[in-house]
Design a protein around this nucleic acid. Structure first.
Lengths: 309, 309
DNA sequence: GCTGATGATCAGATTCGCTTATGATTGACC
DNA sequence: GGTCAATCATAAGCGAATCTGATCATCAGC
């Protein structure tokens, strides 16, 4: 039966073929001569062929034609196994693997580029799949539990059935034209004013609407788009002002100014979550660490731009 | 230790991954659920990673990322092993293998083409190496014993240290111009006559010389060549007559006539030999059988051409 | 003919691996 | 909420495989 075949048998075959005698092969492998003799005999049993001609006496054994054939095949199998070993080693070291990540607009725009860049630097062979289909984050959690996703970015409270890493608080700020009066933006004064922002079916947009609603403001949207750049462009063009999470803003844009609001809208809390039931790949843990670091440094970098005005 | 890895472990992994549960995998493999559980556990020990997340309860197990990786590698290894199985099967059926054959002029010209043609027909993947370097057949026997050759054609008595298959008796005949007087060629009348033939360092040529010498004829060679066609051509051109083994003659050549001799020179006995100490590949035995058949039919085909005149 | 090197073989102890039986957990269902 | 059914893990037992150590058989070379 070929299923009885063991790597040990192939190693014995190779060792004897290379060393020339069973005895030297045995000492190379750390066995006794008797053991190697029996191992080769077992292999011969498996393949049903004599693999060595053994002239009795001091004459060393010699591969039969079948032995040469099996040896060639054994080299291939052993090579394949060694490759598997290396592949697994890369996986364990976190420099290889597959990663399916659920994400959403602002994270994709402001956090993922840096995170993936750094990840690719230290783990070039990792295969990352980003899923940004459904704005509903419950769907992402379902995909997590089902195993379709390894990690997912989420906003707000985390279902305790999952494990998570808190990434930071992303303040909601106002984007206004550069000539807008200095100081924080008074939200109450915005009633009836034209506004731009993200659609309500987007996780980000929905959160902004809830925040404004909580302080009694029903925004007068004149333009809504999933595209953060488009929203920001509209503000620069004077179409209206926008209330968005800080992480969505391109602060280098000279056409707009970023302001805090008065009162402040509760910041959204960002986390990355995964299923506690399923084993996490090492590279996934590495990703979480990098994402947390990138998120923190992004928030720290953007905050001063806000305070400056 | 990866050397503890067995094919059985990989089969278990694959079966569980495909069947979804340990129990179904077990019944597919013909084991109990417990056995498969232990097999997978052993594999996990070998690779040092958990391969299945096993949510307790009726929920079926699921591959971890490491499990998916190992499974992919296992498929490759199993494929390699199956290929080895096929390769060995072809070898055993005699349709594949390597064959190094020691030969000499007349065999190469008259026997091998048909033999190899038929062999290739039934065993297309066989790799044949012909060695026709040394006219000394002792050298061929040495190469046989050393294992450099699998089979060797020889002339005359066979060293009993080797195994052999007798191929037939190849009569020595005379090649004469078409206008030569009818009937057998009287060898005694050839004394002093111009003759052509093979060199004395050739197995064939040497044998002819010995045969002529035994009946007291010292041939007057005016041309000697290893090339049978050249010798025959010289006869056709009237340079001289030739005494050669029948198997070397192209009987379709209208420029010459083939005659028996008076007295007859002892025919050379052809055999194919191999080392009894070394295992013979199935394809080699097949080759021997085909060569014997071809040799017999060649001799039977050529003999009438001789009797006809 | 002796010597030394070879692999095969045997006996014994150990380990491995399979089966049977049981336990533990938990989703599904009433 | 309780029962059922399906899941895998684990323990015990037993037989086979396997390794070690010792011995045997063979034979090239001195």
């Amino acid at each position: 039966m070929w299923s009885d075949l063991s790597v040990r048998h192939l190693l014995a075959l190779r060792a004897v073929a290379e060393e020339g005698t069973f005895g030297r092969a045995a000492s190379r492998l750390g066995f006794t001569q008797s053991a190697v003799s029996q191992q080769v005999a077992a292999l011969e049993q498996v393949v049903g062929q004599t693999l060595f001609d053994r002239p009795s006496g001091p004459t060393p054994p010699r591969l039969t034609p079948a032995g040469e054939l099996i040896l060639r095949q054994a080299e291939l199998v052993l090579g394949q196994i060694q490759e598997a070993e290396h592949e697994l080693d890369r996986y364990v070291r976190g420099v290889s693997g597959r990663l399916a990540i659920g994400t959403f607009q602002s994270i994709s725009a402001r956090v993922l580029p840096f995170t993936l860049g750094r990840l690719r630097q230290e783990a070039p062979h990792v295969e990352v799949v980003l899923v940004e289909e459904d704005p509903e984050q419950d769907v992402r959690l379902g995909a997590l539990a089902r195993g379709d996703l390894d990690l997912a970015f989420v906003v707000g409270d985390v279902d305790p059935a999952f494990e998570s890493q808190y990434l930071g608080a992303d303040p909601h700020i106002a984007i206004v034209p550069p000539d807008f009066p200095d100081g924080p933006v008074d939200l109450e004064a915005l009633a009836g004013q034209p506004m731009v922002g993200q659609p309500a079916d987007d996780t980000c947009g929905l959160l902004v609407d809830r925040g404004l609603e909580r302080i009694g403001l029903a925004p007068n949207y004149v333009f809504r788009s999933h595209d953060n750049g488009a929203v920001q462009g509209m503000v620069g063009a004077g179409v209206g002002i926008a209330i968005v999470p800080l992480l969505t803003v391109d602060v280098t844009d000279p056409a707009v100014s970023v302001r805090s609001t008065k009162p402040e809208i509760e910041p959204r809390r960002l986390s990355i979550v995964w299923s506690g039931d399923r084993t996490l790949a090492p590279v996934a843990e590495r990703f979480v660490a990098i994402a947390a670091d990138v998120c923190a440094s992004q928030l720290a970098t953007l905050q001063p731009h806000l305070a400056a005005r």
